[in-house]
């Protein structure tokens, strides 16, 4: 290797790096423009700046949420229990509804594969792709205000996750016991009851507890559109411009969610 050949290659490498650098900065610049444009059309043009006023006004508006209005505490017991009950009953209903969906959507037990398997899978996707708020809006429209539409919304939202995960567990089950139950002359039902159910039961219960925990959160939110519980209380406090009361309700939600988290942690640990 003589020095001049290194010189030549050096020039080439440096030139190449310069070009790559130029391309890179060009992309950074494009990205920067895109971010600016997004901020312009969302935050700048879509916000009512005159109403917000100065920074002091923003702080003042936030300040209205403090201190919490403790006088509403005595009205919170019932909606808190209601939220809790919506989550529990919604989860139970989801368990009941998920059983046929699991049956249809697990490829090794589905009765008529070509028809029922896609059906089961679609039901799972439908349940999961519609948000609980949307489910709640639908059921409030269907059955009116209160806890009942909340229960239905929570159940519909949970079915997909419970069914999908359980169906996948069923597809991974050890096939030995299935053969054994078939070999003693067991029916399809008996194969599911004796060879499959015992294998997936711990997973299923753990999933349901996990869903119950999430459903407590969901139940606090669905109330905002009229489906009962603490969400409904928040909405009423907002309508009365009692922002301190809103803070109190949010604190109640935190306590309830915390309880749910602790209970589900210990319950799941007891099973596994």
């Amino acid at each position: 290797m003589n020095p001049s050949s290194i010189q030549i290659r050096l020039e080439r490498v440096v030139a190449l790096r310069k070009r790559y650098k130029a391309i890179r900065y060009f992309f950074y610049f494009i990205l920067f423009l895109l971010v600016l444009y997004s901020i312009k059309i969302t935050v700048i043009e879509d916000t009512d700046w005159e109403r917000i006023g100065g920074l002091g006004m923003v702080a003042k508006a936030m300040g209205r949420f403090l201190p919490p209005d403790l006088s509403v505490v005595k009205y919170l017991f019932k909606p808190t229990v209601e939220t809790f009950m919506i989550a529990c009953l919604g989860t139970m209903l989801a368990v009941v509804l998920s059983i046929p969906v699991i049956w249809l959507g697990a490829h090794n037990i589905t009765p008529f594969f070509a028809v029922t398997y896609p059906l089961g899978r679609s039901l799972m996707t439908l349940s999961r792709s519609v948000n609980e708020i949307v489910w709640a809006l639908i059921f409030v429209a269907a059955v009116g205000l209160g806890a009942f539409p909340g229960i239905l919304a929570i159940a519909m939202r949970s079915v997909g996750f419970v069914a999908k995960t359980t169906a996948e567990a069923i597809e991974d089950v050890n096939t030995g016991p299935i053969e054994a139950i078939k070999a003693v002359g067991g029916s399809r039902f008996q194969v599911i009851r004796y060879a499959i159910l015992p294998q997936i039961l711990p997973i299923f219960i753990s999933l349901v507890i996990f869903q119950w925990d999430i459903n407590i959160r969901r139940a606090t939110i669905t109330g905002l559109v009229g489906a009962g519980g603490l969400g409904l209380t928040i909405q009423r406090q907002l309508l009365m411009y009692n922002y301190g009361g809103v803070t109190t309700v949010i604190l109640a939600m935190l306590v309830l969610i915390g309880i749910g988290e602790v209970v589900s942690y210990y319950a799941r640990r007891a099973i596994i």
Partner: peptide, 13 residues
């Protein structure tokens, strides 16, 4: 009756 290599018992029963 059938007897299997891997026993094929239902473990959790």
């Amino acid at each position: 009756g059938m007897i299997f290599q891997e026993f094929n018992l239902v473990d959790r029963m």
